[in-house]
Design a binder for these strands. Structure first.
Lengths: 341, 341
DNA sequence: GTGAAAGCGCTAACAC
DNA sequence: GTGTTAGCGCTTTCAC
């Protein structure tokens, strides 16, 4: 199957007996052209259904007006929202977007960067995969002076702009809420320990405990690999803990949902036996029974801010000096944590 | 902010004292080259960190190895799954993907097509917006011989390949299930009537009724605009119907979830008072209380099939004659419909 | 086995 | 005001 022919400037030029440069000028509304010629050309272009070849244009001006986006997983509602925010605001400013998913694999992430760079995107927006534990590929982008920003899953050391949530703050909000609900023996279910968000959310958890004069108890920190099996294993472990905890804060909503589902199947009562909370405010969290207390992270907003800042830098509207944008989260208290009262 | 310099073939050529054509040949492993020169060039390219400029290459060979994808909404789990399937399988065959969302707007859909075509994508995969009620933009693609396939939300008349679910079959499965559960007075909550899926699912609904000797009752067909308010309005109307229906089949899961949530807030019991079912098998449907009976539509699979067929056509592995691929759905019976027994 | 040259579709400096 | 020319980075015929 082959594509049909596309009208070029050359063809319009021939038809009108003028040169291609005149066509080019007319189509970009250059002021030095005779209005009449301009009118004729624009008309003819329309009639012939001319569509500029962005490829040729990009090659010539060495800018594609295209951004590359890499997310761990497009089917995650949070990342889909980020992408949506990025798209809408990139389009608004005349940029297109190429999206790739790393499927949480560092090799795929590296491969994605490579193709996007080969496709000559003007800049990149990257959220790192869970697996990403070395950062040469990012430093290479940096040293090749290809502009990029990191969002949500970031690497703190690299000197580029980053957009994150106040993860520690959000975790503090949740933990503080659980404490206010009367919990004193709160489990933190973390993801893999080297994940940025695992660390940050632990910080907030510990800070809240500290304010209540409760000191860190390593027994109360459980690690899940974030698979359904891993989450269920943690759910089982918690049931066997001695003394029995009274509250559980899961690093992300899906973990909390898996724990809740497992417990329900075993007749464990939430929030009566355990107050439960998650983080992210996935659509799912609002409809589980009982509805899940969580922390809302506006993904669309994050995408919007990340792309706006990046384009400001590209277009010279913002300094190239890296900045860090930190978005606040909001506690969404629901029934799953209403332990007492 | 500007991008750093990228190594070109010309630079490698200069460094090695050979011509660019030799570089080009070496890098694509042309057999007519002296193995030694080839080795030297490949080595040097690696050393200089050469990355081919896909733009220039595409311009030259007039193929971008890039596909355009247009979906109504990226944040919908179903479409995100489709995209995921498309991406994975396009990449596997050496193609990149540019994704756009129409946000359910026909104007945006037309604009998306325009940019993707201007970007010289080799072909398109399109799922139509809810608003799309005329099809000139598709016929134009067709007449310009730009290959494309339609998936899920299709326009039946246009002679291009389409991938759809057996929507009528799925609706039949659900309705038949509700009938088996003892329902005899079943409401169908449809979306806007000109939507492809509204029509198809109604067909299946009517067919199942017919088999039970029940004839069409227009009173039992409710139309929602698919917004939350619209869905709730329908939920209210159903409560006031006389005689009271015993089963409700909603065209898509989100409608069923809104109805369920509203009813729960009013103390209406599901499945005791109404057996309820949806369509799509969104992640949400599994975790609502009671879990929602629905029909599963594997989006990833749909994306995979659509892109595989399209690439087969592009690569000459399949005939250019349009075909229609129809995927079967699976009934997912859950508690929301266990009315009797 | 390798080089020279043309050209993909476009833009922009330089002529006149 | 408009044409001529060069060139973006690459591939590919045609020489030798």
């Amino acid at each position: 199957m082959k594509k049909g022919h596309q009208v070029t400037m050359k063809e319009i030029a021939k038809k009108l007996g003028v040169s291609v440069s005149t066509i080019s000028r007319a189509l970009k509304d250059s002021p030095e052209l005779h209005p009449e010629t301009k009118r004729k050309i624009v008309e003819m272009a329309k009639e012939m259904n001319y569509q500029p070849n962005l490829l040729a244009q990009s090659l010539r001006i060495s800018r594609t007006k295209t951004l590359g986006v890499i997310v761990p997983e497009i089917t995650s509602h949070f990342f889909a929202s980020c992408i949506s925010g990025i798209q809408d605001h990139a389009n608004k400013r005349g940029y297109n977007v190429m999206i790739c998913q790393s499927n949480e694999s560092i090799d795929q992430e590296i491969a994605n960067i490579k193709t996007l760079v080969a496709s000559q995107v003007d800049a990149l927006l990257i959220s790192l995969s869970r697996e990403t534990n070395h950062y040469e590929h990012l430093y290479e982008l940096y040293s090749r002076e290809i502009p990029f920003v990191l969002f949500d899953r970031v690497h703190e050391e690299i000197p580029v702009s980053k957009v994150t949530f106040n993860d520690a703050g959000g975790a503090y909000q949740v933990t503080h809420h659980l404490l206010e609900m009367g919990c004193r023996n709160i489990v933190y279910v973390s993801g893999p320990e080297d994940l940025y968000i695992s660390k940050k959310r632990k910080e907030g958890y510990l800070k809240a405990l500290d304010e209540y004069g409760i000191k860190e108890n390593p027994e109360l920190i459980k690690i899940s690999d974030l698979t359904e099996e891993g989450n269920i294993r943690v759910a089982q472990e918690i049931l066997m803990m001695e003394p029995k905890p009274d509250g559980v804060f899961c690093m992300i909503d899906p973990v909390a949902v898996d724990v809740l589902t497992y417990w329900k199947s075993k007749g464990v009562k939430v929030p009566e036996e355990f107050a439960l909370a998650g983080f992210t405010n996935n659509p799912t969290s609002a409809v589980v029974e009982p509805p899940l207390t969580t922390v809302s992270q506006p993904g669309y907003e994050m995408g919007k801010l990340a792309v706006s800042h990046l384009l400001d830098q590209l277009d010279g509207l913002a300094s190239d000096d890296p900045i860090s944008i930190v978005l606040d989260t909001t506690l969404v208290p629901r029934k799953s944590s209403q332990k007492t009262i």
